[in-house]
Design a protein around this nucleic acid. Structure first.
Lengths: 180, 180
DNA sequence: GGTCCCATGTAACAAGTTACATGATTCC
DNA sequence: GGAATCATGTAACTTGTTACATGGGACC
């Protein structure tokens, strides 16, 4: 999965591992938290598969870097992945915990949902700020059509966070009702 | 993660691997898709850690089964997990694909979102049916308070699917707008 | 002198996926 | 005779996590 994300980014521009990580942090972080160690590992794997090609570049005042570019095979692989259906494998750690919350008291659980709500309200603010920098990203992606899909992922994230806040409210209300 | 789910179930009732798998399929499947091979592997690991204890039971007309029960150490571990904050590690494969959809044509992408919408409409129906069997589950869980949290997970799932459908509509509308 | 940026990784472990493998009984 | 239910797993692989490890240059 991360593999195809990296392929997708390299299809836009040549990059080194560090830049890929930065891009994840800036643009994809709201739906994908990439680990440094995994990115470098995947880059090696992708190069071994022939999907990308790296070459060392010397810099002055900065460490050497390994720049990667996508190969024709890589572009084929990317296109195939994009055309394949996403089979949703559901896995929501939060709900696993919620399912077993019956072991704790009503008050503890009200506190649980309040905390969750607060965390999501902070995330909601981050999305509002992301919105305001969309123009910046449109430039960076150098393509209006492409930046549209970045916008779709942001809008999904915003909806999801908003939905989670509403759900917390409903859970809190139900718990308070139970308390009576 | 699955580890704690199993611990949680065994805290409700003694079960064998097969029953755990069935329970996942019936009650937790909308947020956690458990693999057979992983469940059996985790059971072995949990027993080795001393969190659960298994014993073989002979049956007639059916294969022998290994029944597991939670130990005191297991209960401590479960309580600790329940009290710990869930640090949200975001990872949405669907959005990874959407982010790179700029490589495909508008028409292909409209088709993509229509298909996704249709799949989620089917899932929505499944939630409506799940609702109607909530009474059945209340009995099964033998505890109204506990079944409340099962209800919370269902309501989250329903909201999420509904949200996804709305998001698809918005994406389709935006793509059609672009086409003009 | 300390922190941030740039830049690369390794090692060990934990968790999830896919395919394979077996076998009795019951119901149609 | 075939499918479904009950029941248990192994093996190989892929993916993700956590901690460790290094080091120069810029800026305050």
């Amino acid at each position: 999965m991360l593999k195809h994300g990296i392929l997708g980014l390299l299809n836009y521009n040549d990059m080194n591992g560090y830049e890929i990580l930065e891009t994840f942090r800036h643009s994809l972080n709201h739906f994908w938290n990439a680990q440094k160690s995994q990115v470098y590992r995947e880059l090696t794997a992708l190069e071994n598969s022939g999907y990308i090609q790296g070459s060392w570049v010397e810099q002055d005042g900065k460490p050497d870097k390994k720049m990667y570019s996508i190969t024709d095979e890589g572009r084929v692989e990317l296109a195939q992945w994009l055309s394949k259906d996403e089979k949703e494998s559901v896995r929501t750690p939060l709900l696993m915990k919620v399912f077993f919350l019956g072991e704790k008291s009503i008050d503890e659980n009200i506190a649980f949902f309040m905390k969750l709500k607060a965390a999501n309200e902070i995330r909601y603010q981050a999305f509002v700020e992301a919105d305001q920098s969309q123009d910046y990203y449109s430039d960076e992606l150098q393509d209006l059509y492409r930046s549209m899909f970045w916008g779709f992922t942001i809008s999904y994230g915003r909806k999801r966070v908003k939905m989670t806040i509403e759900w917390c409210d409903e859970c809190i209300a139900a718990l308070k009702e139970q308390k009576k």
